[in-house]
């Protein structure tokens, strides 16, 4: 067993959240799913990537948001994201990082109002990656767009280039970061699609929260796997990408917008 596992289990011990590491927990959850297939929620169409194996372009992670199920007074996805990624409300809200936000869209003609979460759209052709001078903004083989803070110089050109306003600039000295989401002063950051969870075969925090206590509006999965729920729905239902006209081919799709 790798030393890495030990690290994570130690972490579990210390925080007193049950004393089991994420992967151990996943194994247990998988067993439950096998025993009780009807539960559905715990069943995943994708598996944890084993240690030592890189992300592969055989996958293309995506999300589908059914905005008709996104309720006006619900923000569990935002709360879950902040908690998972160790984000806090800063002294000035204008300087606070937001990986995901809930958008209210109002049609001035019909008066129709609806709601949807917007996060990094994990585009196939991300503008942030194209413009980044150092290559800190990059797309992983499985389509997840991330910031390599080791080489981010904090120029914010990616923030100028992103049509979705998906990125934030860390303007504060950070402490007590999550070990899986390093973040700090002077670097740009954004939604990671909870890559640390996805790599362990789990849904991103926002999707889990939405399905658990929210409206059940979000689905996460592999767009390249024709048997996944997201692929089936994208194939049969009318889905839309935000600002599809810009041609960046977002991995996050919406229904009802």
């Amino acid at each position: 067993m790798s030393d890495d596992r030990n690290t994570r289990e130690t972490a579990g011990d210390q925080t007193g959240t049950g004393g089991i590491g994420r992967r151990a927990f996943l194994g247990a959850a998988g067993a439950v799913a096998v025993l009780a297939p009807g539960l559905g929620l715990a069943a995943h169409a994708f598996e944890a990537r084993p240690d030592g194996v890189p992300a592969s372009s055989k996958h293309r992670w995506g999300m589908l948001v059914d905005t008709t199920k996104c309720k006006s007074n619900c923000h569990v996805c935002v709360d879950a994201c902040n908690k998972e990624n160790g984000l806090y409300e800063e002294a000035d809200p204008k300087d606070t990082a937001q990986y995901i936000r809930k958008l209210t869209v109002h049609d001035p003609d019909t008066g129709y109002t609806h709601y949807l979460p917007v996060m990094c759209q994990h585009c196939t052709h991300p503008a942030c990656v194209a413009v980044c001078p150092t290559g800190a903004s990059f797309k992983r083989a499985d389509g997840i767009v991330l910031v390599d803070r080791h080489i981010c110089i904090g120029c914010r050109y990616c923030m100028m280039a992103c049509p979705y306003k998906a990125r934030s600039f860390d303007e504060y000295t950070e402490k007590n970061q999550k070990w899986y989401n390093p973040r700090g002063l002077g670097c740009v950051e954004g939604c990671t699609m909870c890559a640390h969870l996805v790599d362990e075969g789990k849904d991103p925090a926002c999707v889990t929260a939405c399905n658990k206590t929210g409206g059940g509006a979000m689905v996460f999965g592999d767009l390249k796997d024709p048997t996944s729920e997201i692929s089936k729905r994208v194939a049969t239902e009318q889905t839309t990408q935000i600002r599809a006209d810009l041609g960046m081919d977002p991995g996050v799709r919406y229904e009802g917008i």
């Binding site: 130690t10 972490a11 925080t15 160790g86 806090y88 007590n176 970061q177 999550k178 899986y180 700090g184």
Partner: peptide, 18 residues
């Protein structure tokens, strides 16, 4: 400046951090 400095990285008292 970015990485957690303790194994658990954050712990449960995050809100008290700042």
């Amino acid at each position: 400046s970015c990485h957690a400095t303790t194994p658990q990285g954050g712990g449960d008292d995050q809100t008290a951090a700042r």
